[in-house]
Design a protein around this nucleic acid. Structure first.
Lengths: 245, 245, 245, 245
DNA sequence: GTGGTCTAGACCACA
DNA sequence: GTGGTCTAGACCACT
């Protein structure tokens, strides 16, 4: 029985603050949250946002500069500028493989917790939940049409925000705090970055949303859950298609 | 609304190694990987397993001792012993009745993440996973029979430890770290109180376990998930019946 | 009655190094050897002076910080700073009135041990003792005049520190360790509260000091002792007058 | 001014428990509290008395055995036996010099605190104090005469106990707790061992006691103090004479 | 150039 | 052979 315990405790590693900062910044850069040519926040701002000292920010910035991800200019008008990445085919493929697993896991997790939440929501939703969800749906409709018509980045943004709120609203209707947290976490870790990468819309997202809400309203748990799964899988396929390009 | 993306960079916190050690050890205790009365590895062993210095282990142990989770004895034959949590059955029942909602939520959450994990596991399990799960199953079988035959508290303990390991083993076979965390989290919250209250066995638990493992082995995701759901619901009913007494 | 001799062997207690360090530092603080606002030596310096490791110094510092005796600041220009004890003058006076007996006892004790020490010192002082005492006297003179002229809190501080050192210096010249301890103990108990309450000077203190030192230098034990007694009684009267206001 | 601080903190040394035990036992042996041929308490008893583990006692005993101060015999009827010391002239002289200073200091200290206490007692004694002291005086008288007449060790013991109580009673009459502690400490550290060395009486001790008590009763502080000083100096001379033999 | 934390290794007291 | 304490030295984050 002692080998049961063997897996109970695993080595611990304390990660230096500047590495954490490097990770965060690299992630933000790789996910396109800052685009080539953009200026990053100043050292002082970064220190404040990340809640570390400027020394630590500098250490992180030095690493990123060495990696060629950002350029540092000194003096007045200086600052950190995002560099256009220099592609290396082999490196890209490795990156892709690494991401492939992470994306698979993220989607698997999202499907599990979001369909679970949707199923419960269909059984427990109250009038107020429905009102809220309908309102969000209308908002998304408007944002989507405007965004497509005007190629408006602002409306794209709005759509994404409302989309997020809609999914969280469903989790809220499930009336289970832990589940709500799990859904929020799953989305926070994945959807925002992914949304940021593509910075574009899934035109038929609202059709799914409507169908899901209808099933929730009609108290059809399995149907609602199935539609949510389909919706998420659709997004997954969009992303995987992009990754295969 | 545009501040949705502001979360691109979030505050960084460097977690002291001894806190990480506390977290790991507390998790192991809460998951029943070490049971009341068990002796933990020695300071020196823990230091090696966790790959930290004895000093760091000691800092963590001091916290756990202050929390009453473990007892420390010196000298030859000394060491760290898992303490039985102190509770008063009547008080626990009152507490639980007050928290009926919390129990419902905990089970809902468990069902979602554990059935999800089981479904994935059925698709992904490897030979090594099956071996491990079979071994645990056999261990539980022995422990269960011995426990029933001899009214042995130690074998009851063993059974519960193995039970926990079995469920986590399935989550591990799903090969999704976040999901594994979620399952561990779901279980840890119920484990100590529930295991402690009952301190007794669900005699047919192993039938479920066997059926689940069979479905996983045969790569039947839906069947495995359905059986896992049934198993958890059975436990839920046992508990709810106890609360209604 | 025969158990009088039983005390031949008494329980032994090994005192952890960090407690010894706490004791030393607390004593130095209570004797005014470091004054509120002063910076203590750095961690590394303390470790060297006390001949212990930094770890041990830190353990002691943590205690003193928890007790509010010192403040800890990090970073360049950081370090340990002596905290001004917090007290409320009105409250102190009430406290003192209630403890009139304690003050009487403290002064009685101080007179006994300090005059005793002075008497011995007059017989045993060496050149080095005299040099040291003269130096302290000159320092007090400067501090006193500057403090009076400039109303300088820092020089008041200096004066008090030197005053304490002068009295202890006399005890040291008596060349009796137990007596030195007794004098230090007698002073430490009065020092912080009294020095803190008044935070002011006894302008003629230096006249006494000079007269005492002269008698010690001239090897006149009884004269030296008498002058010390007079000096302490003067302080006693100052305090009692304040308490009667 | 920084050289004032220089003396404030001195190196710290943590003394291993077994060294403390060695010191205590060696002191007891050197002071004759156990005499050659006597059997020491058993290991277990020593461990209990000294509040340390048997291991530690053994470590101490090993040192003392190596030094030839005690003999260790094993098995039934075994134990620790005090050895007759083998004198080494040079060593004795060093010892003597070491003690000379310690004895001088101890007497100086005793004189200071005991005469101080006596002076105060003469001013503050109450009827109850006098009663108690008279009673002790009468007891000493009896013990002294019996001891002298019968050469009774028991009555010598009794005398010493009462003597101690008498001196402490005076300190008590001074009504100053700190002073009482100081007197008790001075006596505990010196008088008992010294009494033990000589194991004999100062026949005229009671004359001093009577004279002191009379002065206290008559409220004559200076007279009382002077007589106490004379009394202690008499003892001092007796001891110094013995040391010079 | 300060305090904060950890490491590796030693010695000790304990049972 | 266990936990309890200390040391020496390193690296880190802060200011």
């Amino acid at each position: 029985m002692s080998d049961v315990h063997a897996s109970a405790l695993s080595p611990v590693r304390q990660i230096p603050a500047h590495e954490l900062v490097v990770d965060q910044m690299r992630l933000a850069l790789e996910l396109g949250q800052f685009r080539p040519g953009d200026r990053l926040p100043t050292e002082r701002e970064l220190a404040e946002i990340l809640d570390v000292s400027r020394t630590t920010v500098r250490a992180a910035v030095a690493v990123l500069e060495r990696e060629g991800l950002i350029a540092v200019r000194r003096g007045r008008g200086g600052g950190f500028t995002v560099q256009a990445p220099v592609y290396d085919a082999a490196e890209m493929r490795r990156e892709f493989r690494r991401n492939k697993r992470a994306i698979r896991d993220a989607f698997d997790y999202r499907i599990i917790v979001e369909t679970g939440a949707t199923r419960l929501a269909a059984g427990r939703r109250r009038a107020a939940d429905l009102n809220e969800l309908h309102k969000l749906l209308r908002g998304m409709d408007t944002a989507l049409h405007t965004a497509l018509a005007e190629q408006s980045a602002q409306h794209t943004n709005d759509f994404q925000t409302l989309d997020s709120a809609f999914h969280l609203g469903i989790a809220q209707a499930a009336q289970n705090d832990r589940l709500l947290d799990a859904v929020a976490d799953a989305r926070r870790r994945m959807w925002l970055p992914v949304g940021a990468i593509f910075g574009r819309l899934e035109p038929n997202a609202n059709d799914y949303h409507e169908a899901i809400l209808e099933a929730i309203e009609n108290r059809e748990p399995e149907l609602a859950a199935a539609r949510m799964e389909e919706h998420i899988n659709d997004t997954r396929q969009t992303i995987e298609a992009w990754l295969k390009r």
